[in-house]
Design a binder for these strands. Sequence first.
DNA 1: GGCGTATTGTGTACGACGTACAAGTAACAG
DNA 2: CTGTTACTTGTACGTCGTACACAATACGCC
Lengths: 251, 251
Amino acid sequence: MAEVRRTIDLLWFPDGEPEGKRRGRRPGLTVARVVETGIALADAEGLEAVSMRRVAQELGVVPMTLYTYVPDKSALLDLMLDRLYLEMPRAGHPDRPWRERLAAVAGENRRLYTAHPWAATLPASRPPLGPGLMAKYEHELRAFDDCGLDDVTRDAALTFLIGFVQAAARSEADVRAAEARAGSTDFEWWQERGPVFELVFDQHRYPTATRVGAAAGSAMGAAYEPGHAYEFGLARVLDGLAALIGTAGSR
Amino acid sequence: MAEVRRTIDLLWFPDGEPEGKRRGRRPGLTVARVVETGIALADAEGLEAVSMRRVAQELGVVPMTLYTYVPDKSALLDLMLDRLYLEMPRAGHPDRPWRERLAAVAGENRRLYTAHPWAATLPASRPPLGPGLMAKYEHELRAFDDCGLDDVTRDAALTFLIGFVQAAARSEADVRAAEARAGSTDFEWWQERGPVFELVFDQHRYPTATRVGAAAGSAMGAAYEPGHAYEFGLARVLDGLAALIGTAGSR
DNA sequence: GGCGTATTGTGTACGACGTACAAGTAACAG
DNA sequence: CTGTTACTTGTACGTCGTACACAATACGCC
């Protein structure tokens, strides 16, 4: 609880008290510097590389020093994510059809996850209300202007859209992680499994799965194209929202 | 890599070599027992409770014993998840409209996550091909019978549907985790924040966000209803798929 | 200027985790 | 009975997050 309060304060007042009002030792670092280092590490080596020890090492201090800047590791992760949200490019919503506006919002989020894949794999991904998240939320809600949705529905629709993009990014991260762990698991790999192959690819037991999986199921050796799942899903999302917004609400 | 092979073998041949073919010391446990214990622990206390030490303790052995049954912890988690998939109730697909069939599939998955919330929060959620996953995949693909979709699209549509349910479950788990960490962060809580409150709820800076958030945004103090987001989203998903399947493909 | 207080920084250590490796124990085959 | 196989345990390592006590620095006040 106290850590959450501290995190909120750090999000909105990262520099703490004004310079002239302070006593005591001058800090050698800033919260922003700690956060940027965390982000740089995550971008370069993935989220697992972001340990307090490692971040401290990059900054040339001992790990416990970081605790004078952030209350705990989860706060650091929250701050890192909010920073991404604050800095992600956001186009305005010119006078375009709603469908284009929503696709643009989805694209902005997708580019964030493409640039920072770790952001899709944070352990608990419900971020606190920081300046980044607020700006993002405001911007994205605006894409629904003039769609004829009431506030509750607008929020739910945005949640649905963003939830999809996040889930797609996380799924892609999972595929990459599984491949890193297992290497290629193509059809030849499965054939080398011997007896287990006969069980998995049993056309009598799994007729549809073996047929469809061979054509499309990446887990079964077919080529995996992350972009396809995203594009297909986004079209579904937009079609699903279209049924809600209808033609009367569109402009 | 070797661990992945071993995991696959364990999934399909959990008892290993037949009894009569074996030499050496008799095992005191079974893989199934280890997996069941992991599941029981996760169900009772959440995924963080599932450490090798804790599972071993529950089984009355030392942690290293478990490594004679599973190659590593991630394999244990994979086995646990596949077991859930194998055991989840699956209704047949009687002669019902496709929309009902898909909603039923979504419901089966949702009930799995409701019964086992930890399943939505596994660190890397791309499970290997086990008997549970294959049975699940076969069953769920069948819900798309006679929808007029080619194999690649059928797979993508199922991925989209299941991806949504998973994402919703994960989101709900995140909300619960955040609340457990922070306690209630309702509007009164925010008002107690003092100066930061003015920044967050700045109607000049975030006009749409403050208005919509107050009505619907759970992160801003409004009541959160997990079921609503799921129902809303599922309707969007089904509407989005309807645009694909159309009336010609439905039966 | 000195003392009290506030704030940052470090040294040391703890508990927890996953798991390597060596040695011990039990069971089968010849 | 011996060699081999397979399970079990003891011990330990490296890594992690972070508690706590002490040290170092800087300001305010008398």
